[in-house]
Design a binder for these strands. Structure first.
Lengths: 109, 109
DNA sequence: CGGATAGTTCGACAATTTCGGAACCTAGGC
DNA sequence: GCCTAGGTTCCGAAATTGTCGAACTATCCG
């Protein structure tokens, strides 16, 4: 499975990130990714919104990925998803913390 | 000039707020409103994006207002605009600070 | 009353989004 | 090699959005 291009930290656009987060479905996905903890095996696409049609899920993940909110790296025939928390914290400190449901804080909290 | 309905703090929706902020034009408007300081006379519609067609500006201000990001109160034949900073800070602490250009912080900074 | 000014509302149009089915690709297991 | 499971891509359809001109409303001023 081919590797994706992920935008560089410096190229992230705030409107694009906010837009990606402005959809309830995507916000929910980001919430799920946020509970991931170092050491656990990363989530795979199918695990977010399992009841959702594959094409719809793929679409939302694409929006998140292209905005730079998530990273998805191929592993065998699946893709491991992760939140680009450090990158987002670097560009817009506090944004993720503000948007994520309470309790799901960055490392520094 | 008639008064508007502004959503109550408790009714604000995060996706709606993020969506309102996800447009470069609106983000710019919010940035302008954010530099307002206690004591100064509040901005009026025409002062944000003076070169923009009135109908376009009115549209963007409506999106911001209905999302609960701004408040606009009639005063004579104009409307005074303000950022609902306290309300937003209450619901999503840090969000505005994260999104606003550096230096335009909330009172507590 | 007769302007002029500040904003809103109403189309209209192009561009973008969202959603989902169907076909496709590709790595892994047998 | 064949089959399957995980995802992507392609297509179309319906709904939203952004933009702007034109008409309209309301307020202030002389």
């Amino acid at each position: 499975m081919s590797t994706y291009e992920h935008p560089d930290v410096a190229d992230l656009s705030l409107p694009a990130v906010l837009f990606a987060l402005s959809d309830p479905v995507r916000l929910e996905i980001v919430g799920q990714l946020a509970v991931w903890r170092e050491g656990e095996t990363p989530l795979v696409c199918a695990s977010v919104g399992p009841q959702m049609p594959k094409s719809t899920r793929s679409h939302h993940l694409k929006v998140l990925r292209e905005a730079g909110v998530t990273r998805s790296v191929p592993s065998g025939r699946e893709r491991r998803l992760s939140l680009r928390r450090a990158d987002l914290d670097e560009r817009w400190p506090g944004l993720l913390d503000a948007v994520l449901p309470g309790g799901v804080r960055s490392v520094r909290a």
